[in-house]
Amino acid sequence: MAVAALVLFAALMLLAGAVRSLIQRRRTGDAGNRRTWAPRGSLEWWGLAVADLGYLMAALGAPLAALAGMPPLAVVDHPVVRGVGVVLAILGILATFAAQLAMGASWRIGVDQTEHTALVTAGPFRLVRNPIFTAMTAAFLGLAAMVPNLVALAGLALLLIGIETQVRLVEEPYLRHIHGAAYADYASRVGRFLPGLGRLRSHHPHGS
């Protein structure tokens, strides 16, 4: 299972990273990567760094630790859990790529505070405001379930902390600033990561 988890992680990086950036560059002339623009030590820098560490621990460190002899956690060490993990990882990978494609020309990795892209509210964005993060979390949860050891568990915890930091403290303030009432209205109707959960209180009346 550890080898299978490594293969699926490589597939995720290929699709959601290399292929999506290539598509973006061909369509717009810009690969869409803004992550290196974050000032070192900023909230965005920390959010991305912690999330990256979590990704690597859950999807790379955990399988390598398992191959080196680290035992799985007994409470979740069951073939059914590993099987569900495989399905969840595959579906999460495909959903991540689909949600990225749904953003079209507005897709970015990271935030440029001066950039004004279109607010995407169609497709999976009608259900949740951050379907890419939702799908990626599902994928990494699946990968961790395939190799359920302490490294995977720690990686998931860091991943969630990093994503919450990036979304709540960086991306949402940026979107409120750029899109104003349009984003406030959208965020008041659509959940953050899951349908109906994490909606923001709108300070703007409808139609204003």
Rank of each mutant, 00 (worst) to 15 (best):
A2F: 10
V3N: 14
L6Q: 00
V7M: 15
A10D: 05
L12S: 09
L12K: 08
L14Q: 11
L14V: 09
A16Q: 01
V19L: 14
R20L: 14
S21C: 13
I23W: 11
R25M: 15
R27S: 14
G29Y: 10
N33M: 13
R34H: 06
A38E: 00
A38S: 08
R40G: 11
L43H: 04
L48Y: 05
V50C: 04
A51D: 01
G54K: 00
A58D: 02
A58G: 07
A58N: 03
A59F: 00
A62W: 01
A65I: 03
L67Q: 12
L67W: 09
A68D: 06
A68S: 14
G69F: 04
M70E: 05
R82T: 14
G83N: 07
V84C: 15
V84F: 11
A89L: 05
A89N: 04
L91W: 09
I93E: 01
L94H: 06
A95E: 03
F97R: 03
Q113G: 08
E115M: 14
E115A: 15
V120H: 00
P124S: 08
R126H: 10
R126F: 04
L127N: 10
N130T: 09
I132V: 15
F133T: 00
T134W: 02
A135G: 07
G142M: 01
L143E: 02
A144W: 00
A144H: 06
A145M: 15
A145W: 03
V147T: 07
V151L: 09
G155H: 01
A157F: 11
L160C: 12
L160I: 14
I161D: 02
G162A: 03
Q166H: 12
E172C: 07
H177L: 10
A184Q: 13
Y186L: 07
R189Q: 14
R189L: 12
L194S: 10
L197P: 05
L197M: 13
R199W: 04
R201G: 11
H203I: 11
P205S: 07
H206E: 15
